[in-house]
């Protein structure tokens, strides 16, 4: 039972991180119907920026809490800036191109960013400082839940609530929903499509960066390639939940997290990634609309 609980909690943590990345996929897909292949790279860049900022601040001897805060904020700002720039360079000129063009462009962008970080920084794994302090009130339960896990769960929950409120109640949230439904119509009623798309990229990139910072300090090491696998898995989660749907992305991420956690725990840990990829393949083949997505009939 304790083992089960461990796996359950592990899956929940994993799922939360996937959810933070999956949100970006789902929002971008919802609006411009593009699998933003470079999204995983944003998450990786977020983690790298946090590492760099934290290391610099440590040398100046700041205390842990302020390092965590500043590093996260800088990482989020930079990730948003990267997201915005990538959209401008690689996707915006291709709005009217055939569907495959932006996808290939996205793959190119992903390769470019990976190697940019790999060359400028390093291609090896580098240790990531533990930015998350040990909470005193968790001490009695420290065999069950680590502080970093607790932090991941709380942060994810806050981000989800924030996003839901933002999309439901704010003006830009309404504009996003309108654009997702019908771009032409949204344009006719005076919505600035380009702004909405840029905003979506900023929002998705920021949440991915939060995920990057959290997972990096939880696992304790990063390299330039972490974005690729995490990206595909988060995409799996987004599709599993029904791409374009925000609650779907969260649900899908948790299901994926638990699947991986239990499968590696009870079956074999060698095939960790195989389980995720198999789930992806099965979902896309048998239920491409996902758990919460609506099935759409193609317009003729």
């Amino acid at each position: 039972m304790e083992y089960f609980l461990d796996l359950f909690l592990g899956g929940l943590t994993r799922g939360s991180i996937y959810a933070l990345i999956a949100l970006g996929y789902t929002m971008v897909y919802g609006i411009i119907e593009l699998i933003n292949f470079a999204h995983g790279e944003i998450y990786m860049i977020g983690a790298f920026i946090a590492l760099i900022v934290a290391s610099v601040l440590t040398m100046y001897g700041l205390n842990m809490i302020s390092i965590l805060l500043i590093a996260s904020i800088v990482a989020v700002i930079y990730a948003a800036a990267y997201g915005l720039t990538i959209e401008k360079i690689a996707y915006k000129p291709l709005r009217k191109a055939p569907r495959l063009s932006p996808l290939i462009s996205a793959i190119g962008m992903s390769i470019l960013l990976q190697n940019y970080v790999g060359i400028a920084q390093t291609k090896d794994f580098i240790p990531f400082p533990n930015l998350i302090p040990e909470f005193a009130f968790l001490a009695p339960y420290k065999d069950t839940i680590r502080s970093s896990e607790f932090m991941i769960l709380i942060t994810t929950a806050i981000v989800m609530v924030f996003l839901t409120l933002l999309i439901k109640f704010t003006k830009i949230g309404k504009a996003m929903r309108a654009t997702a439904q019908d771009k032409q119509m949204a344009m006719l009623v005076g919505i600035d499509i380009n702004r909405v798309i840029s905003f979506t990229f900023v929002l998705g990139s920021s949440t991915a960066a939060i995920g990057g910072v959290l997972i990096a300090s939880h696992i304790g090491q990063i390299n330039f390639y972490i974005g690729f696998i995490a990206g595909i898995k988060a995409f799996t989660a987004a599709v599993l939940g029904g791409i374009g749907s925000i609650p779907g992305a969260v649900l899908g991420s948790l299901v994926l997290g638990w699947t991986e956690s239990f499968a590696t725990g009870y079956i074999s840990s060698d095939y960790e990634d195989v389980f995720a990829f198999s789930l992806l393949v099965l979902i896309l083949i048998f239920k491409p609309e996902g758990l919460l997505g609506k099935s759409t009939t193609q317009k003729v």
Binding site: D273, V274, L284
Partner: peptide, 25 residues
Amino acid sequence: FPVLRLRGDYLAIVTLGFGEIIRLV
């Protein structure tokens, strides 16, 4: 055979998944 019904971008991801599965196996 299984990917026949899929649209362009989903097809890309599924084939990517298949490729990785084969390598991991």
